[in-house]
Amino acid sequence: MASPDHFVLRSHRLADLTWPEIAGLRQYAPVAIVPLGACEQHGPAMAQRTDTTRAEVVADLVAERLNPRVVVAPVIPVGVSEHHMAFPGTLTLSPVTLQQMVYELVTSLHRHGWRKVFVLTGHGGNNAAVEVAVSRLRGDLPALHIAWSGITPVVSDVASELALSEIRGHSCEIETSQAIFVDPELVLEERLARGSSTVDDLDPAGRLSRSQPGIHFPQGYDALSATGNLGDARAAGKEAGARLITTAVERIAGFLRELLDLPDRKPAIGVEKP
């Protein structure tokens, strides 16, 4: 039997492989990454697939870093984007629909032998749905190790160091820098614009939503910014994007290296599945 270090994986993307190839690789590639994206407005200068592409690229880079021990499932390209629906072309799923899609996709992987799964979302609006799905999966699949993250939250310290705007988070200098690095075709650099960048730029509800840490008062992006973006995308650059993405890949890969060494989960004592 070949060792993991000597096993050749023709592609780490499951969708590119045949079923006999997949049957042969499972013992060598015990971790599956499930990328999630969105199809939503990203201000006047970035494509709607920005979150999807960022998730796909980071997943690919992590899989390459850990080759051949990680496979990547097909991306879910539409997410929970109701807060962007005032802008033409945004597509959205309900949180219930997305969490069920994540649940069923991971369950499919589990049925084929994967016991270690990492869900990677390129869109923060997916977070609540992912957390519900992960909670359900942990309860229903006792042997499954499942973890999840976004991209920018993994490098929040780097983002804080590089950011210039008081208010940021969507199509700002941080996200735009990542987009320029992962796929320059995502960005029309001549159209990059400053969005709402300070608390004073926000309307009264927007200011209130930012007034108390820990209190959640969600707002639609049309109420937060006339252009649909926060922060100052004009300050973005490929060098910053490279640092953000490379650091995220290193940190996620480091986590997965440790996940690879964990034994399967066991049911809690005294708990039996119905």
Score class of each variant (00 low, 15 high):
residue 12 H to V: 08
residue 86 A to D: 15
residue 162 L to F: 13
residue 65 R to N: 11
residue 97 T to E: 11
residue 157 D to W: 10
residue 126 N to G: 03
residue 154 V to A: 05
residue 71 V to K: 08
residue 270 G to L: 00
residue 34 V to N: 04
residue 16 D to W: 08
residue 10 R to M: 11
residue 208 L to R: 11
residue 226 A to R: 13
residue 78 V to R: 04
residue 255 F to K: 08
residue 186 L to I: 03
residue 66 L to C: 11
residue 146 I to Q: 00
residue 6 H to Q: 14
residue 141 L to H: 10
residue 68 P to H: 09
residue 101 M to R: 02
residue 145 H to S: 11
residue 192 L to S: 06
residue 2 A to E: 14
residue 66 L to H: 10
residue 7 F to R: 14
residue 69 R to K: 13
residue 91 L to I: 06
residue 231 G to R: 04
residue 170 H to A: 03
residue 58 V to G: 10
residue 118 F to W: 15
residue 117 V to G: 06
residue 36 L to S: 08
residue 186 L to K: 10
residue 188 L to F: 01
residue 72 V to W: 07
residue 44 P to E: 12
residue 215 I to T: 12
residue 199 V to M: 05
residue 199 V to S: 09
residue 101 M to A: 14
residue 22 I to P: 01
residue 197 S to N: 08
residue 145 H to A: 07
residue 32 A to G: 02
residue 20 P to M: 01
residue 192 L to K: 13
residue 92 T to F: 01
residue 237 G to D: 14
residue 261 D to K: 15
residue 57 V to L: 09
residue 229 N to P: 10
residue 8 V to W: 13
residue 118 F to K: 11
residue 225 S to M: 06
residue 128 A to C: 04
residue 229 N to G: 04
residue 26 R to V: 15
residue 124 G to K: 00
residue 41 Q to I: 00
residue 30 P to L: 01
residue 8 V to K: 11
residue 35 P to H: 05
residue 135 S to G: 15
residue 135 S to T: 15
residue 209 S to H: 03
residue 42 H to V: 00
residue 51 D to L: 00
residue 195 G to S: 08
residue 199 V to G: 02
residue 56 E to Q: 13
residue 128 A to L: 12
residue 95 P to D: 05
residue 210 R to P: 01
residue 165 S to E: 07
residue 156 S to P: 00
residue 87 F to A: 04
residue 105 L to N: 12
residue 206 G to Q: 08
residue 114 W to C: 00
residue 42 H to Q: 14
residue 106 V to Y: 02
residue 162 L to R: 08
residue 97 T to A: 08
residue 33 I to L: 10
residue 124 G to V: 04
residue 99 Q to R: 15
residue 1 M to E: 09
residue 115 R to A: 00
residue 79 G to S: 07
residue 53 T to C: 11
residue 184 P to D: 07
residue 112 H to K: 10
residue 195 G to Y: 05
